[in-house]
Each structure stands twice: as C-alpha cells, then as structure tokens.
Amino acid sequence: MTGYAALLRGIMPSNKNMANDKLRGVFESLGFTKVGSVLASGNIVFDAAETDVPALEERIQGALREQLGIGGGTIIRSHAELRALLDRDPFGGRKHERGSYLIATFCKHAASAELPAQDDPLTEVIGYDADARAFLAVIDNSVPGKTPDFMVWLEKAYGKDITTRTWLTVQRIVKKMEG
C-alpha cells in the first residue's frame, strides 16, 4: 500500500457537500484505507494499492463529481514525494508568519522551471521543485489592503490544474500521513 494525499481544488467548507465527512466517504467508497482529512480545505490522506497516479486522480475526481457534484480538480502526491519536499527545506528554515507567508503551488503536470516574468513586489518566488512539481513562494501579506497576485498569475501562466497550500498545511498533511 502507498500513502497518498489528495489536494482538492475548489473546496469550500461552508458547502455541506464539501464537508470533510462527505469527502472521506467518497474515498472510502472507492475502497481506499486509512482515509483521513487535514483541515477543512480539501486535503484527504489515504492508502491505496494502485500506483498509477493519473488514473487515481481521474477516478477520484469522477467519484467526487458523481457523488457530491464537486467539479474542481484533484492533484495527488505520495507520502514519499511530500516528505522529500519537506526534507529539502526549500525555504531555508524561514518561518511561516505575517510578512513571510510560505506557500507551495502544486501542478498536476510537470511545469517549466523557467517562470514567466512577474513583477508583484509582494511575492518572492523561491523556485520550482521539479520532484514535487510545485512552485514555492514567500508572500508578504503585511501590507494592509494589498493582496499579492501570485496565485492569479500562476493560474494564467499554467491553467487550472494547480492548487496552492500553505507550507504549514503541507507539514500538517505529512504529519497526518505519518501518524
């Protein structure tokens, strides 16, 4: 069995069909084991014998659409991929706090490590981790009334097959997988 995390796009906890118990129910109905949720924002951990990740993503997304009417997107990473990302410490020990909000944007498919130009002064792009297929950035959210455009910029550049998590959430997902 392999441990996976499904990073679901477009989950709104206020929508009763997107509640953690319903999301876990979909994964359990597909025969996955050790199903758990992390926070209320579409992070489901599970074990599966299957190793074809694109097929898993498609199967899960189909079940979410059919059973709950959720049409967002599903991006899967294995425990090994996420653990290795954390172990690489791409943020160099920086802390997730006001003024340095650490984020990882996961891409369904590999992306070019060469980032298109972006000039958002509130965003420091750390880079692209090819092994995790994730863009890493530090967002300065300490300026009142200013919202960084990094995620909008990434979606324009790479489409909707991406989803963003804070570094703290990635750490919580791995902790849940190892618990």
Rank of each mutant, 00 (worst) to 15 (best):
G93D: 08
S112T: 09
N20S: 14
A80N: 13
S29K: 15
D89Y: 02
L56Q: 00
L102D: 07
G73H: 04
V38M: 05
G93N: 08
K175L: 09
A48P: 12
S41C: 10
G127Q: 02
R172G: 02
L8P: 00
F106V: 05
V45M: 06
Y4W: 05
N15R: 12
D119M: 11
L115T: 05
T123I: 09
P13V: 12
H96K: 05
S29F: 11
I44H: 06
P54T: 06
N141W: 00
R98L: 13
T123F: 03
G25I: 01
N43G: 00
Y101F: 13
L82E: 02
I103D: 09
L8K: 03
R98T: 08
I70N: 07
P148V: 03
I162E: 04
G36D: 11
I76K: 04
N20W: 05
S78P: 09
V174S: 01
K16C: 07
R65G: 07
G69Y: 07
V53F: 01
S41F: 01
V35T: 05
L136W: 01
V45N: 11
H109R: 15
V152F: 08
R77F: 00
A117E: 15
M18C: 10
R9I: 10
D119H: 15
N43A: 03
G71R: 15
A48Q: 05
V125S: 07
L68Y: 00
S142V: 08
L102W: 02
Y101N: 12
R165Y: 05
G71D: 14
A6D: 00
R24L: 07
G25N: 06
I126F: 00
P144V: 06
A157I: 04
M177H: 02
K176S: 07
T74R: 00
K160V: 11
F135R: 06
P90K: 13
Q118E: 15
R83T: 15
G69F: 00
L85S: 06
V143R: 12
I60M: 03
K175Q: 13
L64W: 00
A49V: 12
Q61W: 01
V152T: 14
T74P: 10
G179A: 14
G179F: 05
R98E: 12
G145V: 11
F32K: 08
A80M: 11
P13A: 14
